[in-house]
Every structure is written in structure tokens, then in C-alpha cells.
Amino acid sequence: MKFDISKFVWFDGKFIPLNKANVPITTHAIHYGTSIFEGIRAYWNSKNLYIFRLEDHIKRFRQSGRFYSISLKFSNEQIMDALIQLCKKNNMRRSCYIRPFYFVGQYGINLHINENAPTHVAAFMFPFGDLFDKNGISVGISSWRKFSDQSTPPLAKMGGNYLNSILATQECKRNGYDEAILLDLNANLSEAPGENVFIVKNNTLITPPLESSALEGITRDSVLKIAKDLGYSTKEKTITRGEAYLADEMFLTGTAAEITPVISIDGKKIGTGKPGNITKEIVSTYLDIVAAKNDKYSSWLSPVY
């Protein structure tokens, strides 16, 4: 994916040009994946730029580091303000993606990370549209299993965790699919490489529970709340591969993917082979929310200007 990063980035509390944001090759995170990140969307509605669920993203941002005793040396309020100011500094008046992250700096080859290890925090942004075809994508079940709490916490958005996702993505692309689905250690659906999974069966939305090694996705949570408000039943329960094949509808959720319909799995058509009516209704509601056209969810938006 090609993208043009904005001119200014935020690095350890200062706004600096992108070409000045450099780190030494001895940075611990480069060697061991000791980095934490978030992906955050901001939407331009022709009048203002709105950051979606900023506070919730930053709460998770801090929480992820706690698993590994990696310190985030700015308050949540400071980081939220920094991201708003970064949008202003770059005069961003297009829908965009914001990537804050923090990481362990020069710490030798020591694996005993603690709260006193040196850390840095940074953020950059870039204009961003659709990650996937909103008319629907194909997915394939990966032979790679999603890691579990038996090995490393799935609830942490750590840089190193996504090596698992890279393997699944490479495999699905080789096999001609748009995206992968990983199973958990019990052979139930877990999630996609960067997205949560939903199926619709008999007008009920079902998504794997956190026990299936699914990330506690913010878009996932948004969809559960939207669906309930629209009058649909929702469940967090294990989903077998066979249940996925028999789903009436399927879609993925994530900051980058937003809500993406799935029209086939392992070459088998889902429902009619087109985005389902419930999926389309949720997508439409979501797009109204992020464009500040639904006052009920105004607390989810942080205006920039």
C-alpha cells in the first residue's frame, strides 16, 4: 500500500518534520518488537474533521503497554491533544488515518523490560480512503492459527504480535483471496489479520468472544452497539468453520477496514454472494455516525477545528 505521510509528525512531545524523526539502529523495538500502536480514523465531512472514538483508542493504547510493563510517559489527555494538534499542524482537511505508537528505545539486548526502560512516543498521519472493496471481498481460512493467552496476550496491540498476521496474509494472497481468517487453537474462528469477524444468522449478529483470541476491537464494539440500537440481537460466541460456511451474511470490522462485507469464504458463497441487507444497514449507519450526521453518537467524535 502506497501512502503519502503528512509533513509533520509528533515525536516525544514535539512537532517536527518527518525527515527529522529518526531513531538509531540499536533501538530495542527494531530487534524485539517492543512497540505498541493504535490505528485511528478521522473523517472529513466538508465542514470539519472528526476523530472517531479517540478517547477509547488512547485508553487501549496505554493498556496494551501495561501487559509488558512498557511506560507511556504522557497522559491520555496530552496524547489526545497532540493528535488533534497534529491534524491542525498538517492542515488535514481530508479523511485520514492516524498512527500513534510508543516503543522501547536504546536498551541493549536486555529482555528484562520494566517501567524504567527508555521509551519514545510518536504519531504520524496520512490521507486514507477504503482499505478493501466495499462491494465485498473473498476470504480464506489460513492454516496458521491465531496465538492465544497461552503464549502472548491477544488483547495487546503490540508490533511483534502482527508477525502472525503477516504469515496469514501472505498465505491468503498466494491462494487468491483478498483477506485471511485465522482460527483459534480450538479450530474456531478468531479474527482476520487486522480485523474482527462477524457473521449474521437468522437476523442475529454473532462475533467470536475474546476467549477465541480476538482483539477487543473498537469498531467491533461500535458495531455491537449500533446493531442493538437498530433492534438486532447480538451474541459473542464461538463460531465454527462450518457455521461460517452457512452464514447468511459475513463482514469484517476494523479501523482501517471499517465495515467490509465478505461475499465468499474458502471459495464458498456467503448468502446471495452480495453484501446482505443487515450489513448494508450497519454500514450506512456507521457512515452517518462518522460524518457527524447522527447526534445519538456525537460523543464518539472529537472535532479538530
Rank of each mutant, 00 (worst) to 15 (best):
P17E: 03
Y107K: 07
I40Y: 01
L72I: 09
G33W: 15
I70R: 05
N110M: 11
V23N: 01
G33I: 15
I109W: 10
L111Q: 11
I98P: 06
I51P: 00
G108F: 13
M80N: 08
Q78R: 12
Y107S: 06
P17S: 01
E38Q: 00
E55M: 07
V23A: 04
H31D: 12
L18N: 01
I84P: 01
S75K: 15
I16N: 01
R53T: 00
F103H: 05
H57C: 02
K89E: 12
I109E: 12
K88C: 06
K89H: 09
D81Q: 15
E77P: 10
K14Q: 12
F74M: 14
F101N: 10
R62Q: 14
S95P: 15
E77T: 08
H31I: 14
L83K: 05
I84L: 10
E115D: 07
R93G: 04
I25V: 13
R94C: 10
N48A: 06
L72W: 09
S75Y: 14
W44S: 02
R60F: 02
R66G: 02
Y32F: 13
T34H: 08
A21H: 02
Y102M: 09
R94P: 07
D12I: 11
I16A: 02
H57K: 01
N76K: 12
S71F: 12
P100C: 05
K88W: 12
Y50D: 09
F103I: 11
L54R: 05
H28S: 09
R66C: 06
I70A: 05
F74K: 11
L86F: 07
S46Y: 14
S71D: 13
A82F: 07
Q106T: 12
I113P: 08
I98N: 04
L49S: 03
I98D: 04
P17W: 04
Y50G: 02
L49W: 06
I70K: 05
F74W: 12
M92S: 05
A42E: 06
R62L: 14
I113C: 04
Q63W: 12
M80R: 10
Y32G: 03
T34K: 11
I51Y: 00
L111M: 12
E38M: 01
H31P: 08
N76M: 15
P24Y: 08
I51M: 08
R66S: 06
I113T: 04
F67C: 06
L86S: 04
L72C: 10
T26D: 13
G65H: 11
F11I: 09
Y50L: 13
L54K: 09
G39W: 03
L83V: 06
I109L: 14
L54G: 00
G65Y: 15
A42H: 02
R62D: 08
T34I: 13
E55W: 11
L49N: 06
I58Y: 01
N45F: 01
F101W: 13
G105V: 13
N48T: 05
F52N: 00
P17N: 02
K47N: 00
